[in-house]
Simulated assay, not measured.
Amino acid sequence: MKLEGRILFIGDSITESGRWKDPEQIGYGYVRLIRDYLITSYPNRFFDVINRGVSGNRIPDLLARWEQDVIDLQPDIVSISIGINDVWRQLDHPEKEQVYPEQFEQIYTELALQTKEKTKARLVFMEPTIIGEDIHSEGNKKLLPYVEIVQKMARRFHGILVPTHRVFLEYLQSRSPYRLTTDGVHMNSIGNMLMARTWIRAVEKF
């Protein structure tokens, strides 16, 4: 796969990362780091990087806006980062209607099928990152089936897997004194760099 063209990133607040306040609408997180890396690394290629992250989104929210925010834009690459809020809401708002793994997989499959049927885009599947900077946190335990579903989607749809969860856990196991997040979920600049580097390493292989 030649890495160029329209690359669309879709997800929750980790992807959004201030894009509404950014004149370029790219945001200030991992999407901007990837965009800047691609432009400086491949100066003779064209890149149209689009950020469609929306804070608070769970996977049903992606389904509701998939036609408008993905299909209508006809991207060459679609990078999906979702799952954190599907688990986090089980912890911070247990009274809400929840998205459990079976529904998560069902909707994720529908997103991938729509993309395959209605675009020529290559799919990039990002594992959900972390909930708490402790590998044994309740959030990280609950994330595991969602991570496995993302891995399954990558295999089933011959997509590119970005092993973000694995890389984040490896970092936490290193006991580095530097944090990755501001609150256990949302990235600081180090967390954004780790996400961007993991994405680049995975995608450049193809």
Rank of each mutant, 00 (worst) to 15 (best):
R201I: 06
L111I: 02
F168N: 03
K96S: 13
Y146L: 07
N192R: 13
M153Q: 11
T109I: 13
L63V: 14
R201N: 14
H136I: 11
G159T: 05
H165Y: 13
K96C: 14
T198W: 03
S176N: 14
E4R: 07
W66M: 05
L169G: 05
G56M: 07
A121P: 06
G18T: 08
R45D: 09
H93M: 11
I39L: 12
L123S: 03
N140M: 03
L169S: 11
D92R: 11
R201P: 01
D183I: 12
S189M: 11
R122C: 05
R65M: 12
P177H: 11
R19A: 04
K120Y: 13
L144C: 14
I77G: 00
G56A: 08
G191D: 04
I135Y: 09
P177A: 08
L144K: 14
P145S: 06
Y108N: 03
E170L: 14
K120N: 15
L113R: 15
S41E: 12
H165I: 09
T182F: 13
W88I: 02
L172I: 08
K118S: 10
G139M: 04
S41V: 03
F157P: 02
S55P: 01
N57L: 05
E170W: 06
G83F: 00
E24H: 05
P101L: 08
A112R: 05
V147E: 03
T40F: 09
Q68N: 15
D61L: 06
I59M: 03
D69H: 03
Q68K: 14
V87Q: 06
H165M: 09
K2Y: 12
V31P: 01
G184F: 09
V147T: 04
N140S: 09
W66K: 02
Q68W: 12
N51V: 05
T181P: 06
E4M: 13
G29K: 00
A121C: 09
P163F: 01
E97P: 07
R89E: 12
S81T: 10
I160Q: 02
T15M: 05
M1F: 13
R197A: 13
K118W: 12
S137E: 09
T129Q: 12
I160F: 01
G191L: 10
T15L: 04
R65L: 07
Q98W: 04
W199D: 03
S137M: 10
R166T: 15
R52M: 12
A154T: 02
T119V: 10
V124E: 00
I84M: 08
S137L: 07
L38T: 01
L113D: 14
L113W: 10
S189R: 14
S13R: 05
Y171N: 02
W20I: 10
N57T: 09
K120T: 15
M153V: 08
N192I: 02
E24Q: 12
R6A: 11
K120S: 14
K2I: 13
D36F: 01
R201K: 11
I39A: 08
R65Y: 08
E102Q: 13
Q106Y: 15
E95P: 11
Y37G: 08
